[in-house]
Design a binder for these strands. Structure first.
Lengths: 245, 245
DNA sequence: TATGGTTGTCTATATCAATAGACATATTGA
DNA sequence: TCAATATGTCTATTGATATAGACAACCATA
C-alpha cells in the first residue's frame, strides 16, 4: 500500500470530499475486502491527518451514495463495490459486453429527435454539415444503477425508425438488425475524462466533483460506411475500459 | 452550446473551483477560439449565477496554472490550450505517438528499483508472485509540460540493465532494442479515471480535484511473452486516447 | 481627450468547513 | 455484567468561501 493517503487544504475542494473520494476509490480497489468494513473513524482521522468530524462528513456522503452503512457500536459496513468492465474491441457492444457482470441490464430511450448534423457529427458520419441525422439520448443501467448516458447519431435516411426499434428491443444491435443491418463493427473510440456537469449528476446519480469517462465512438457497417457516432458518458467509479489488441 | 453551465452549492467543492474546471474544459474544447479571450468577469458571473468575485477566484486559479492571463482594461487572454492525442494500438509507443504534436518530448527516469512482484504485477507478467522484477518510475513531458507519470515493471532476468538503457535513450523502445528486443506489441490496455492524489498533483503540476486518466498496459514480444506491465497516470485535461480497431 | 468597458483592490457581512472536546449510545467479547 | 470499542450528538471556535457594493486603474477607440 501507499502508506498515508494525504489530502490538501485550501484548494477549493473540501477535505471531507477529498477523503470521501479516496475511500470510495479504496473500496472499489478492494482495499477493505478482508473485513468488509471501513476502518474506524478514529483510525481514518489519524491516517488522513484530520479531525474525526471531518471523516464523519466523508462517510456521511458515502452513506448518502449507498456505498457504506454505519452501524453504531460495530463500525461502517461496505454496502456496494462494483466496477464494470467494458471491453473495447472491433465487436464492441454495450449489452453483450457486461451481460455476464450484472444480473439485470436496462437501456432507456430518453429522447429521440431528427436534427441537422453539426460539423463534428458530420465529420464522423462522413456526411455534409447540415445533413439530416437521428439523435438518440439513452441511459444505460446495470442492476438498476445508472452506468452511462449516451448520445448517438445515425444517418436519417438509412435508419429511419431506429428510435422505435431501439425502444422495442432496448439494444442498438437488435435495432440495427430490424432495419436490415445484420452486423457492424467499432471503427474508432476516443477516450477522455472530465468532471460531471449538473445534468450528468442528476441522470447518473452522482455527487458534484464526480468524474466521467467519456467515449466518443464510431461504428461502421462491414463495408466501412459509418452507421453510428456516439458520445457516452460513464460514471468513472463504476466502470473501466479494456482494450485488447 | 449548452446554455448555462450551472454549478452547485454546499457539495464540498467550492464554487470557484467548479467554475475553474468548467472554463478550463471550455477552453480545451475551443469554445472561445473566436476571440482568444475568456468572456468578461461580469458576463461569466451572470452565466454561472455567482458573484463577480467568485469568478475572479476561478480565473486566478487558471492564471496560476498558466492557462489564462488577465490584462487590466482589456480582458482575460487564453495562453494555452492543448490536448495531446495518444493512439492506443497494437504498436502503441509513447514517444512516436505524440512526436508530431509537440515540439519537444522528454522522458525522465525518476526511480529504478529491483523488487519482488506483487500479485497484480505477477499476473500480468505471467510470473510467480515474489519473482524479481525491475520497476521504473518515469515522468513524461511534452514541451516541458508534464503529461504523465508511469510505473513500469519488467522481468528482472531478461531485462537487467534496462534502467541505464532507458536513462541513456529516454525511450522504452530504444532501451528494449539495446537489450536485444527489437520489436514488441501492446497486448492489453485498461483505462480508468480517478482523482489525482498528492504525489500526482506535485509531479504533474496539477491542482486538487484534478482528474487522471489511468492506463494499465501490458506489452509482449512477438511470441506473446509479456515484457512490460505499466500503470500510466495522465493529466486528463491534457490528453485523450484514441482506439482504432 | 473623453467615454465605455474591462480588470484590480478594498471593506463588510453571512455561511460553510474544520477543529476541539465532552459525553451518550450501541455492539462485541471476556 | 463489565470493559473496550464503535458510532451518534451536542457546543464552541476559527478560518475559508461567497456575496455585496464602491471605486481605482488601465485599455481601446470614437
Amino acid at each position: 500500500m501507499a502508506g498515508l493517503k494525504q489530502v490538501q487544504r485550501q484548494t477549493g475542494v473540501a477535505l471531507w470530499r477529498q477523503i470521501a473520494d479516496r475511500i470510495r476509490e479504496a473500496i472499489g480497489n478492494g482495499a477493505y475486502d478482508g473485513t468488509g468494513m471501513v476502518p474506524p473513524e478514529t483510525v481514518l482521522a489519524l491516517q488522513f491527518g484530520v479531525n474525526r468530524h471531518t471523516v464523519r462528513s466523508a462517510l456521511a456522503a458515502l452513506a448518502q451514495e449507498g456505498i457504506v452503512r454505519a452501524v453504531q457500536g460495530r463500525g461502517t459496513l461496505i454496502e456496494r463495490k462494483e466496477r464494470l468492465n467494458f471491453p473495447i474491441t472491433r465487436r464492441t457492444r454495450f449489452t453483450a459486453g457486461i451481460g455476464d457482470q450484472a444480473r439485470e441490464m436496462r437501456s432507456l430511450l430518453l429522447d429521440e429527435l431528427t436534427v441537422e448534423a453539426n460539423a463534428e457529427v458530420a465529420r464522423w458520419l462522413r456526411l455534409k454539415t447540415g445533413a439530416k441525422v437521428i439523435r438518440l439520448e439513452t441511459l444505460r443501467e446495470a442492476d438498476k444503477r445508472p452506468v452511462s448516458k449516451a448520445t448517438s447519431w445515425f444517418p436519417a435516411e438509412r435508419f429511419a425508425g431506429i428510435g422505435e426499434a431501439y425502444r422495442k428491443h432496448q439494444s442498438i444491435t437488435k435495432a440495427f438488425a430490424e432495419l436490415g443491418l445484420a452486423d457492424y463493427v467499432r471503427a474508432t473510440t476516443e477516450v477522455t475524462a472530465a468532471h460531471a456537469d449538473t445534468a450528468d449528476l442528476a441522470d447518473l446519480e452522482l455527487t458534484p466533483g464526480a468524474i466521467l469517462l467519456i467515449a466518443k465512438a464510431m461504428n461502421t457497417d462491414l463495408d466501412g460506411v459509418p452507421v453510428q457516432y456516439s458520445i457516452s458518458r460513464f460514471a468513472a467509479d463504476r466502470v473501466q475500459f479494456t482494450i485488447e489488441n
